[in-house]
Amino acid sequence: MNRDLALGGATLAIAIAYYLLSAQIPESQLADAVGPQGLPRVYAYILGALSLALIGSAIRGSGLGARDSKEPSNPESRVPSPGLKILRPLGVVAIGVIYIVVVPWLGYIVSLAGLIAATTYYQGGGFSRRVVIVALSGALLFWGLFVAILGIQHPAGIWPSLF
């Protein structure tokens, strides 16, 4: 059960880091008996204990933590097959990150059209005039919905300052 071992290790690390961070919360004279650090500490202890339990059961190779692995039918735990496929999702994340970075400059419509086109291409939709048209009209549709109708102030980008 390498997977559970890794998970337990990761959550144990989170528990320790969270505990250390909670110790840095400044003391306050307005504090109650429990204090701002009180429950975070308890959460850190519980997470630590659960992590150890998970690691323990993973090493034993059975027990509470290992049960799900026998039930691949569970939709929440569809395990991607190993290999490059695990890296593919990172591309989707990268598209989102690029969107966040460029949207203040390129503005909402252009950036969103880029995101739609890039995602379509990445998901195997190819790159054609059709994709470009769909991306642009999609971006305009979302602009109409969010900016024109709902009045959400999505970034306009550098465009208004050019004209």
Partner: peptide, 11 residues
């Protein structure tokens, strides 16, 4: 997928 992504980042 592209439109879901666009919807999510916009919303």
């Amino acid at each position: 997928m592209a439109f879901i992504y666009a919807l999510v980042v916009s919303g």
